[in-house]
Design a protein around this nucleic acid. Structure first.
Lengths: 252, 252
DNA sequence: AAGTGGTCTAGACCACTAG
DNA sequence: TAGTGGTCTAGACCACTTC
């Protein structure tokens, strides 16, 4: 038997495993499999796609590396749910100066609908007149105010989102996006700069006007590099810092 | 023929591919294969280790992901040389505010030998009395002073390093570590905070005292998580920023 | 016992590089 | 043409989970 059916090789030139990966990603993006649910077993996928199990494994490997899927031996392969602690810290890099990691406590202080405007339009790939939702939160770490977050969301992607729904969520913000709107945040781009606190920022964070801040501008993306959230954070730089590791590879 | 010889399974409990990977890493750490050189072909490695080619490929995959090896189809698999532009940007995340990336130009303004002291000792896993080399550089981007770098190196790992050698290098600093001392920087841990410029820092960078800085404390590691460099950077935050991507996975 | 993912083997064929 | 990495297949056996 030939390693590859002639017809299939005409369909697309890309490696089979990549084609499979794209189709699996498509299924997740469309909500065919919901977060926390298992996708079909590897042997079932192999049969469905008409490829060897090794090829399926390679496709799944890629999605696991992207944190889109999680394998559990003996149980199955599941769509990643944004509710575990580990994944949370994947998108939250602020720590105390002594290195202590802790979960932020979120308090929402503003929620409104608005037009995108030039800046958000550019970041979110919208027209400046498109509708957005703007949310302002104060995040505390171990009881101390640490971060002022200004979030901008394309209203079209979050139909019916209200302050009540936003505040009533039982888990992280990205889990809300995922569970209620099927939006799976996979990647984020961040730019950090130094800044000084305005009067209002200082008031919100309980620090002095003119104090040092770390300003972070983040754009979060889902499948197909579609931007879904713009978040501008201002961090109390006197007490907190940003942690990052370059050279992701596992340990030796 | 059994999939695995019984004896080998008694030697260690870890997967074969991991054992192979560790041995390959060992060879690189010891300098058996130098940067830029090719390691043996996959079939040769398979014969040498007595495993299937697929197992070798899996081991190599891991090292490629860590950027320790580079594959070149038709030619071979090579130990990564820290001299390509791409790898440079892997460890250099400062960009202009408009997003422009460029190569830094390094000017060395101080070079001295010293004792580690408490802080460097902690970061580099030394005793406070161990000898270190301290180097101070000013980095410019497109002709404008951008970063003041204070580097601390364990003297023991860099025997005979002089200012002349350091300045005369023809490539990046990490390439010098690698080519002359066999030290391959694979990973770095960074902590970022906001700060304000001291008088001396301001002078060195050509900005005002009290201006906003981004302070980056980096510890760089080689194989076996051995720390090899402490680098404290102060960035002119008015003109430059730090760029980071979370969720490394490839595109879709 | 049955089903799932995890590891490994053995070998085919393809794509690229160099002499 | 020979040698290298790149992709894919087919099937074995192991480890873990559930019933």
């Amino acid at each position: 038997m030939p390693a590859r059916a002639p017809l299939r090789s005409l369909v697309a030139d890309r490696p089979l495993a990549e084609q499979v990966r794209a189709q699996l990603a498509e299924g997740m993006a469309k909500g065919a499999w919901k977060p926390g649910e298992a996708i079909p077993s590897e042997s079932q996928l192999a049969a469905r796609f008409g490829v060897a199990i090794g090829t399926i494994r390679k496709a799944v490997d890629g999605l696991v590396a992207q944190q889109a899927l999680v394998r559990r031996q003996g149980k199955g392969t599941f769509v990643t749910a944004h509710d575990s602690g580990r994944l949370m810290f994947h998108f939250f890099h602020i720590v105390e100066r002594d290195g202590t990691k802790s979960y932020p406590e979120v308090r929402t202080i503003d929620f409104r609908r608005d037009r995108a405007g030039a800046e958000a339009a550019r970041a979110l790939d919208l027209s400046p007149l498109d509708k957005v939702v703007r949310i302002r939160n104060v995040l505390s770490l171990r009881g101390r105010r640490a971060i002022l977050d200004d979030i901008t969301l394309p209203a079209q992607l979050f139909p019916g989102l209200t302050e009540k729904i936003f505040v009533a969520r039982e888990n992280t913000i990205y889990h809300l996006y995922q569970s209620r709107y099927g939006i799976n945040v996979l990647r984020a781009d961040e730019r950090l700069r130094g800044a000084v606190a305005s009067r209002e920022q200082a008031e919100r964070l309980g620090i002095d006007e003119g104090a040092a801040l770390l300003e972070i501008r983040r754009v979060a993306y889902t499948f197909r590099d579609r931007p879904v959230e713009l978040r501008v954070s201002h961090v109390d730089a006197a007490r907190f810092e940003y942690h990052n590791t370059l050279g992701k590879g596992e340990v030796l």
